[in-house]
Design a protein around this nucleic acid. Structure first.
Lengths: 173, 173
DNA sequence: TTTTCCATGTAACTCGTTACATGATTTC
DNA sequence: GAAATCATGTAACGAGTTACATGGAAAA
């Protein structure tokens, strides 16, 4: 229902074909959301069958026929409904690698330190590349900011944990 | 691979049966992680087949036979491997309802305000119930803290957005 | 005595991914 | 002429959930 919303929302702006949608998402939201090509095609077919979008065909030269999708009235209604539904409630979801944290004390604190430092590195890397993304207009930027906000929060937290690991080892070994 | 790690980690502490594992997770980590009963049974069977855990049977009175699982050497090795693997890298994942944020500007700012306030309410509720959880020892507490940290970050962010919605409406209508 | 808890199981299903295959077109 | 891009498609798989079914035991 989440990815449907995404596709509907994009089709609301302008009609597009599958490849185009996938590309747009990857380029503009790739750092926050992922939508595989096959998933896009799959969802588009499904939504077309549901009557949320309608399909017209285009062809250029000898290339595969483009299936260009337009949002329908039913689709617009679904969009409006889903948007409100998702906006109005918070579902925590999982935070990155929490499970492994559960067992951090199974490791010697020195190794825990090393591993978490690696984690921090990959986090910093993500954060940097996110900040390198050019600004968007409207609420797309909101999503990017949101993501960055969380990464920053995670970084702060990680730093604190790593520091504490020096101060008071939590090892059992 | 994440839930496997969780089950292995718990079985490392003491042997348990499926129901027990599920209950432990729900009671102690329920606010951060979810693991459905059937998923637990399913994974336990799979891991037993893989040789990561071994099964013994117990029975009390006339109740269904308990399948009690013990971690094997192979399981311990897997645990050690998976733990390091997961600890050492950060995978951002999705942040709550980001998709809907992408299209926030499709709503009149007053309604956006109302909806996000609702979202904040549910977030505050989650945060409060998380803080009501009694403290645990060791790194289980780490996970709870981590979760709380993120909820707090999300709350701060949401508050800021909601405020901005007053200051400078982003509506198109 | 009715509800909740204990303890399992399983068949069907959804969602999404992986890993392929095809073939024209543009760019280097 | 090789590589990347355009544009689709599909079969098979995996993880996890839903929804169901079974029954004894303990608690209200």
């Amino acid at each position: 229902m989440d990815r449907e919303l995404l596709l509907l929302g994009l089709l609301r702006r302008s009609k597009m074909h599958g490849y185009e949608l996938h590309e747009f998402i990857n380029h503009n939201l790739g750092s926050c959301t992922e939508l595989k090509k096959s998933t896009a095609y799959y969802l588009l077919e499904k939504m077309a069958a549901q009557g949320w979008i309608s399909e017209t065909r285009e062809q250029k030269g000898n290339r595969p026929v483009r299936r260009v999708y337009t949002i329908t009235e039913a689709g617009e209604a679904a969009f409006q409904y889903l948007l409100r539904l998702h906006l109005s409630s918070y579902k925590p979801g999982q935070f990155s690698g929490d499970t492994s944290l559960t067992f951090l004390d199974a490791l010697p604190s020195q190794e825990a330190h090393t591993l978490l430092s690696l984690r921090r590195d990959s986090l910093v890397h993500d954060l940097e590349s996110l900040r390198a993304v050019p600004r968007h207009q409207g609420s797309i930027q909101l999503v990017l900011d949101h993501h960055a906000h969380h990464l920053a929060a995670e970084l702060a937290w990680l730093n604190q944990i790593i520091e504490n690991l020096y101060a008071s080892p939590i090892t059992e070994e």
